[in-house]
């Protein structure tokens, strides 16, 4: 009976994962391996292809709803970042336009802003996934906030891995493949942002997890009882222990010949924390050095006093 419960939990989390995350690993790998027929991603490898890529983008235009007032208020002092996007068509990768007349230095910033928009949407998806973990919504609300604050960037980096190979990454819901070399060619410190994620992802992908494994692993990350400032650790640890048992069983059944996969996966959580720490420090550096940079209010909330 216990194993049956653990399998039911794995199925439940996999269904939630499929519901809330639009680009699964299965889809991403099909795109990356060219198994999607004529529907190949547009490749961005230099400034010319970056400009040409505009027609391939179909960014989500999220209607203004409940948070309009709040985000407007929050962004009023931030150069109106979110407000600048709402009410108008998204251009390339969420950018208003790209023309040769604009100073080259602004390109990285605009690209960075478009990445922030997608990241904020991804935070919403991760939040919905977290809420689907049995018992999560019964935790103290402050602890739910803490778990998301500390876990969400780790989750996003794990979710980025299936989109990456050693040569580049899918972006814009799999419509575009941006090469690693192009990202490295951006000016500093933007050029330094993605390289650690590529290095991590290439190694992480050798574990060959599938989407059902990923769903459990993401839940384990979210339910970390050692996040700073948690008020009531015990119920979080109890929830995580159940998900860990479910993950261990899942890996035994799904990867019977992959020895020590469970242990190897848990070790990745240590690497993840370092990557997030470095990422947050890089963002803090950007805030100091880039006069025109404004951080999305949701990401600002998450990164403030994080590490």
């Amino acid at each position: 009976p216990e194993a049956a419960d653990l399998r039911a939990l794995a199925r439940h989390l996999y269904e939630a994962y499929l519901k809330y995350f639009p680009l699964t690993k299965a889809k991403a790998r099909a795109i990356l391996s060219g198994k999607t027929g004529d529907n190949m991603p547009f490749v961005i490898h230099d400034m010319k292809s970056l400009m040409e890529g505009e027609q391939f983008i179909n960014c989500k235009q999220v209607p203004i709803q409940e948070l309009q007032h709040q985000t407007s208020t929050l962004t009023a002092g931030l150069g109106g970042f979110a407000g600048a996007h709402s009410g108008s068509e998204y251009g390339f990768l969420g950018m208003s336009s790209i023309s040769g007349e604009e100073p080259p230095d602004t390109l990285e910033l605009r690209f960075f802003h478009s990445c922030q928009s997608r990241s904020a949407e991804a935070v919403r998806e991760v939040t919905e996934f977290a809420k689907s973990i049995p018992g999560f919504s019964d935790l103290d609300l402050n602890d739910q906030v803490t778990l998301l604050k500390y876990g969400v960037i780790e989750v996003l980096i794990i979710m980025m891995s299936p989109l990456m190979n050693k040569d580049g990454t899918l972006i814009s819901y799999g419509q575009i493949f941006m090469t690693r070399e192009f990202l490295k060619s951006l000016r500093k410190p933007f050029s330094q942002m993605m390289e650690p994620k590529f290095e991590f992802s290439v190694k992480f992908n050798t574990l060959e997890l599938d989407d059902s494994d990923m769903a459990l692993f993401l839940a384990v990350i979210i339910l970390s009882g050692d996040r700073p400032g948690l008020l009531n650790v015990k119920p979080i640890e109890q929830l995580q222990e159940t998900v860990l048992h479910s993950l261990e069983l899942q890996l035994k059944l799904n990867h019977p010949v992959s020895l020590q996969l469970f242990a190897k996966l848990l070790q990745k959580m240590t690497d993840l924390r370092q990557i997030v720490t470095d990422h947050v420090h890089l963002i803090q550096l950007l805030k100091k050095t880039e006069v025109d940079m404004c951080l999305h209010p949701l990401l600002q909330e998450i990164m403030k006093d994080l590490y």
Binding site: V123, R124, K131, L141, V145, K149, L298
Partner: peptide, 21 residues
């Protein structure tokens, strides 16, 4: 803590409908 994280708090409290980010 939730006072300092109003958007996260709202995402946690809201239904699953998309919100403007």
């Amino acid at each position: 803590l939730k006072e300092k994280h109003k958007i996260l708090h709202q995402l946690l409290q809201n239904s699953t409908s998309p919100v403007d980010l």
